[in-house]
Design a binder for these strands. Structure first.
Length: 280
DNA sequence: AACTCGGGGTA
DNA sequence: TACCCAGAGTT
């Protein structure tokens, strides 16, 4: 849930989620439609599918217990380099090189001397993080938590609290006079309003709110006919792609993509609904 | 290495 | 507006 999603938004969802599906086996046998509804507006709903698949894999391959090795963790759906390391360090107290966006920023500033790290994670950053991590299990796990918390609470992206930073004295960025971000303006800020991405999200939201299969007309209403209206995110402004034919084509792409990704299914009459598997 | 994939809160 | 957020998977 925390992958690319702020902690404050994840926490309430996570709490109710864990209360509903406390063990991997509980999530594994849940109705996928319920899982996607519980995921709500966290974004990247494919993560919800991977999480349920992960729960099923944990049950099948590891007897319901989250594995303790990097290779076994990485083999699970939705578990990448960061998440595997985070589980090893935070859940099991093992040495692991945990590098999330917070740690990247801390290293970029204190050692690299730049305001923010480059848009993409580089091999050089991985090498630095590996070299700087303590050797022992307990020490490395503590370092992982400390560096991440420093980035999340003090060395923040927007307004870093350097006056409260325990390593302000050895920070290369601070020493250099806190120069501005080199990549400012070069980061490709993703458009949202009127995009295929927003269309996918709108369709998913419609499916989540429906009790059963949704007629295509409902989706057309939700996407095509709402364009530029007060109900649209554009707050009444005419979107770039207000052309009806274009919006309809966009809707078709979104539906096809959602089906391709396993986030939606069509019944024999062509109505769209959230997937039922593996529960019923 | 470059893409794609949500959505919301904030300066 | 333009960012930024405890990334992963595919091409």
């Amino acid at each position: 849930m925390l992958q690319q999603t702020p902690v404050v938004r994840v926490e309430p969802v996570w709490r109710s989620w864990m209360e509903r599906w406390p063990e991997p086996a509980d999530l594994a046998r849940a109705d996928t439609a319920d899982v996607l509804r519980a995921w709500g507006r966290l974004g990247y709903p494919r993560r919800a599918l991977r999480l349920q698949e992960c729960a099923a894999a944990v049950v099948e391959r590891h007897d319901g217990a989250v594995p303790r090795t990097e290779d076994e963790l990485r083999a699970l759906p939705g578990i990448g380099e960061y998440t595997a390391a985070a589980v090893l360090a935070f859940a099991y107290g093992r040495r692991a090189v945990v590098v999330d966006t917070n740690v990247r920023r801390v290293l970029a500033r204190t050692i690299g001397g730049t305001a923010l790290p480059a848009p993409s994670y580089t091999a050089a950053e991985r090498a630095l993080a590996t070299a700087i991590a303590p050797a022992g299990d307990a020490e490395a796990a503590r370092w992982a938590a400390a560096s991440m918390e420093l980035g999340a609470l003090v060395c923040t992206a927007r307004s870093p609290r350097c006056d409260a930073c325990p390593v302000a004295g050895l920070c290369a960025w601070r020493t250099a006079g806190s120069p501005p971000d080199e990549h400012a303006g070069r980061r490709r800020t993703q458009a949202w309003h009127g995009t295929d991405r927003q269309c996918r999200g709108r369709v998913m939201a419609t499916l989540r709110e429906a009790d059963g299969p949704v007629d295509r007309g409902v989706l057309v209403e939700a996407w095509v006919r709402s364009a530029g209206t007060a109900a649209d995110d554009g707050a009444g402004r005419t979107p770039a792609r207000s052309d009806v034919a274009a919006r309809l084509a966009q809707l078709d792409r979104a539906i096809a993509g959602l089906i391709e990704d396993g986030l939606a299914e069509q019944d024999p009459s062509g109505r769209l609904h959230l997937p039922n598997a593996p529960g019923n």
